[in-house]
């Protein structure tokens, strides 16, 4: 018969290790499962910019860092621009890394928008990066990206027949 003292000690030690592992590894449960594969986002961005360089800055992409439900994620994007007749944001493109399609949405603006700011709600299939690219009237591209942790994924579940 095993020494009860020893069994309890080893049980507590194991439990302690597990607790520490759970506390330190702040990863959602599904992170251990197969990740949704990367889509061809870099290629989609190259197609959009036709090889022009994409600068970082000017754009501000707001998404919650931790998402419980990937079906409805508030997205807010704004671009620093005077929005005048000669200097304005032509379009804002939103891309994702791990949804089945890289394109999320494109917003066409103009000087009559007054402000370059758009908000919508999006779906996210997995923990991933979202990229916003602004196309300015002078032909330059500016971008910002946001990383999100998603615990309940959208897009890929089954429907009752």
């Amino acid at each position: 018969m095993p020494n009860p003292q020893k069994t309890r000690r080893s049980f507590l030690a194991t439990a302690g290790t597990l607790a520490v592992a759970t506390l330190t590894g702040v990863k959602p449960a599904h992170a251990q499962m197969a990740r949704t594969p990367l889509n061809n986002m870099p290629e989609a961005i190259r197609t959009l910019t036709r090889g022009a360089p994409v600068n970082t800055g000017k754009v501000k992409l707001d998404l919650p860092p931790l998402v419980e439900n990937g079906h409805l994620v508030p997205l807010n994007v704004s671009v620093q621009s005077p929005m005048s007749e000669t200097d304005y944001v032509k379009a804002i493109h939103i891309f994702t890394e791990r949804n089945p399609l890289p394109e999320m949405a494109t917003f066409h603006l103009g000087p009559r928008a007054g402000r370059a700011q758009v908000a919508t709600r999006v779906r996210l299939a997995d923990t991933q990066n979202v990229v916003a690219i602004a196309e300015l009237s002078d032909g330059s591209f500016w971008s910002d990206s946001a990383h999100l942790i998603v615990t309940l994924a959208a897009c890929l579940e089954e429907l009752p027949a």
Binding site: E103, F107, H108, A119, R121
Partner: peptide, 29 residues
């Protein structure tokens, strides 16, 4: 369209949530 002139256009893909919500701005001319 604002009095017949396009001021905003959005192209949506399947990544947009059900019951699409969009918020944007325009200048009151």
């Amino acid at each position: 369209n604002y009095n017949g002139v396009e001021v905003f256009r959005a192209e949506l893909h399947p990544s947009i949530s059900a019951n699409p919500y969009l918020q944007f701005t325009t200048v009151a001319t």
